[in-house]
């Protein structure tokens, strides 16, 4: 049974810029996905609660404030703590290359930096879902 992929797009922490997140949300919508956007300034706990209740396939974190090394792994850890092991976690924003490896080790499957074509991200999501 074909069903739409459900994605939570979340902006963790103190970061008031969501143009990028909205562009991504729109691109995923146009790719046939159901995108739940929760708005600005979310705590990792709020993001995880929304991911659980919405039973999403993907959590997409967007962050431009520089706090990604703390907030991204925190979301991944909380999901793990709740036993959520079937969700693909991806991140995006202004993230220096040298941080990417560490984030991947912390459970963020892929990081998309500025300039990434949305088509590339859509393809990544479709090919890397953790459940059917």
């Amino acid at each position: 049974m074909k069903r739409p992929i459900r994605v939570l797009i979340a902006k963790p922490g103190l970061d008031g810029h969501d143009r990028g997140a909205k562009v991504i949300a729109r691109a995923l919508r146009d790719a046939g996905m159901e995108v739940i956007y929760t708005g600005l300034r979310q705590t990792p706990e709020q993001i995880v609660a929304a991911a659980v209740q919405e039973d999403v396939d993907v959590v997409g974190l967007s962050l431009l404030s520089g706090a990604h090394n703390y907030l991204f792994p925190k979301v991944a850890d909380l999901l793990k703590e709740q036993g959520v092991d079937d969700v693909l976690i991806i991140g995006g924003g202004v993230i220096p290359n040298e941080d990417i490896q560490g984030l991947k080790e912390a459970g963020i499957s892929e990081i998309f930096t500025p300039g990434t074509p949305t088509a590339k991200m859509i393809e990544y999501i479709k090919n890397n879902l953790k459940r059917i």
Binding site: G32, T38, G39
Partner: peptide, 20 residues
Amino acid sequence: SPYSGGSILGDRIRMQDLAL
């Protein structure tokens, strides 16, 4: 969307403090 089958579900934005 009747075209792509996708959607933006944005109602949670107004209910942020209820999530937890």
